[in-house]
Design a protein around this nucleic acid. Structure first.
Lengths: 121, 121
DNA sequence: CGGCATCCCCCGGGATACTG
DNA sequence: CAGTATCCCGGGGGATGCCG
């Protein structure tokens, strides 16, 4: 198999897209330290709508990155948890978060410089 | 500074978004082994439209991840190159590509299993 | 509580054509 | 060659309302 992310039809491109999705990343990060309930995820991840959260969770489940466990109690309780595959992704996603935090300042600076300078300097 | 990616207004979230963008990732990957011209990028990265390529390049430039060098020749020649900051991101993005390629098979399998099974098994 | 369905709006982004 | 400008469409995604 080629697994060429540059090829628009290669599945690896789709996988890359999934990893790239912000909500996916945040969900995986939130599940880093064990199972979480739907509401916990919704609360922790600011700005995500119920629709997008569900959609993201389904996509991650479909891709085998998380499991969805329904507890037959009332009120209902649903736990989401990283699979082995999901855990293997965790290191990466963690690094992503780290990079974003570490270099956030640099990026902000760069933006200011770029915006402050006349277009055709 | 908090640098909380879960906070919807934290700049780190925006940085995360930029990293997440598929075109950004592919551009950075393409620039991994040295400067590339606009057309080279357009050719290498399948499926990207001129509009999106330009837009992506501008965003990356603004964030200080790449530089844009215009050579005063005719026909015009423009080179894009990773900055130090961009290079620091390269390792991550490389790992991303690697993960996508390595686990592509697992994901495809998981999807087949998920899709093949009746909704409420 | 944890969804799914529906509606609807907005804009991301592709296609096409033109310019320096 | 390396863009920019314009048009336009599809669907991403928010809001709301209803079930188990």
């Amino acid at each position: 198999m080629d697994a060429d992310v540059y090829a628009k039809d290669c599945p690896s491109r789709q996988v890359l897209d999934r990893i790239g999705d912000t909500w996916s990343v945040l969900v995986v990060l939130t599940l880093a330290r064990g199972p979480r309930r739907y509401t916990e995820l919704a609360t922790k991840i600011e700005g995500v709508s119920p629709k997008m959260l569900t959609q993201t969770l389904r996509a991650l489940e479909r891709d085998g990155l998380i499991t969805r466990t329904v507890h037959a109690v009332v009120p209902p309780r649903v736990d989401y948890e990283l699979t082995k595959l999901g855990i293997s992704l965790l290191d990466l996603v963690d690094a992503l978060e780290g990079w974003a935090q570490t270099h956030m300042g640099d990026v902000i600076e760069a933006r200011a410089a770029y915006d402050g300078r006349p277009p055709q300097a």
